[in-house]
Design a protein around this nucleic acid. Structure first.
Length: 399
RNA sequence: GGCCCUAUCGUCUAUCGGUUAGGACGAAAGCUUUUCAAGCUUUAAAGCCGGGUUCGACUCCCGGUAGGGUCACCA
């Protein structure tokens, strides 16, 4: 509330380019922006940066949008840079007029046959900026030269489009990946040329491949949506991603999205990159599945347990280790009369010895030495199929 | 290579000058008549190196080293 009274509302954005599927690095950037905006009661913009017509693909934009949808990261506004060309053109013209940019004659090459481009007139100065995560960062822009900001008046390039959009959209905080840290001085130069205020920067550390290199397709970066197919819950992915490069300062590790919003804090973000650990993600996912209502839980357990394969039973594995075949048969026969009443079966198991009853039951249902517990299996398999399997086990024992 | 950033168990991390350096994942071991791909218990496992500053440094400073990012008419 105070933010809105004292100064303007906070505005953040996530600006992916549709040149690939949204992967976990992008998802985390989106998450941090989202959490910050929610916490500050601000606005979260999703901006598709598709100024590169050759590399931008509709399928990737679709993938990004679908990923946001699945993750449950709601944005307040959606923009496409390809639909905003006139705006950039007007800025290019303005810069040309006020002399902060100029048309530069180029010697055409094979890759770049163009004879002229538009360059920023670099004032060649030192740029210092305060990064929320990294503190004071300073660059000498002399080495940047007069950077190209547009291929032509009608073809703006990345840096120009970003700066114009952030200005036009009133972006107050730029929260993005560390790979953009060295882009920042260029963008500040353009800001100053068009008279835009400087937003607050927060460059978050990269998510690394197991060999500590930048995450790429080659290094095993996978689309966010692939985790969906793997049975990862969106809240699990978000929870895990939040813990990569950030922590709440307590020992709690499992959070719902609203809990994350409550406790998220930019100042606790790390500086160093972090390796993505799929095993820990699995653990986080398991914890979130436990939080689900029973019905939902079964869906995920069923995903890993193949209920369609009829178990192949080995007779000697049916009885519990201190028991024998005859006893196992007796117990299963009794259980069969009790099915499908789980509570009655449990009661019987308590009396007859849990291992004696439950092990043969579980093994009969699954044919596995390790599996979900018998009650769960019966829920997944259904009453009829469960009975069939128990009967089959009894038959084997009776031979 | 230039510029910039970073540096605690294998991995994710706590520590904001004084701790037996804590937790989690994973690993290993053990327990369990077993609602066992679970749970519980236990163990191993870390301050990159060298200088300062200080009564005292993982923590602050400097220098190395290592890793990463970035140096497009891509984003």
């Amino acid at each position: 509330m105070t933010e809105e009274i004292n100064n303007k509302k906070i505005v953040v954005r996530m600006a992916p380019s549709p040149t690939g599927n949204l992967h976990i690095g992008g998802a985390r950037t989106a998450l941090f922006n989202f959490l910050f905006a929610q916490k500050q009661n601000g606005k979260f913009i999703l901006r598709i940066e598709d100024t590169d017509k050759e590399r931008s693909k509709q399928e990737f934009e679709d993938n990004i949008l679908e990923s946001f949808e699945w993750l449950g990261l709601k944005y307040d506004e959606l923009f496409r840079q390809s639909e905003r060309t006139e705006i950039y053109v007007s800025y290019v013209k303005k810069m040309l007029e006020n002399g902060s940019a100029y048309i530069s004659k180029e010697t055409p090459t094979e890759e770049n046959p163009r004879t002229e481009v538009i360059r920023l007139k670099n004032p060649n100065k030192k740029i210092d900026f305060e990064d929320v995560i990294r503190g004071e960062v300073s660059f000498d822009t002399t080495e940047l030269g007069d950077l190209v900001i547009a291929k032509s008046v009608n073809e703006p390039l990345y840096h120009l489009a970003v700066v114009v959009d952030d200005f036009e959209m009133g972006v107050t905080h730029v929260i993005r990946g560390e790979e953009h840290l060295s882009n920042t001085p260029r963008q500040i130069l353009i800001q100053e040329a068009i008279g835009a205020p400087r937003p607050i920067y927060a460059h978050i550390p990269l998510i690394l491949a197991p060999d500590r290199s930048k995450l790429s397709k080659r290094a095993g970066a996978v689309s966010v949506l692939e985790y969906k197919n793997q049975g990862i819950l969106p809240e699990s992915l978000l929870n895990y991603l939040a813990l990569l490069g950030w922590n709440p300062g307590t020992e709690q590790e499992i959070f719902t999205l609203s809990e994350l919003i409550e406790i998220f804090d930019l100042s606790r973000i790390h500086k160093g990159g972090a390796i993505f650990d799929a095993k820990k993600l699995d653990w986080v996912n398991k914890e979130h599945i436990k939080l689900l209502p029973r019905e939902e839980q079964l869906k995920f357990i069923a995903k890993e347990f193949d209920a369609t394969t009829t178990p192949v039973l080995e007779i000697e594995k049916i009885p519990w280790k201190t028991s024998n075949i005859l006893e196992a048969k007796t117990h299963l026969e009794h259980v069969l009369t009790l099915m499908p009443h789980g509570d009655l079966i449990m009661k019987y198991a308590e009396e007859a010895g849990k291992g004696n009853v439950l092990w043969p039951l579980r093994y009969a249902l699954s044919g596995l030495e390790k599996s979900p517990d018998p009650m769960t299996l019966m829920e997944i398999l259904g009453g009829e199929e469960s009975k069939k399997r128990v009967e089959a086990a009894i038959k084997i024992l009776g031979q």
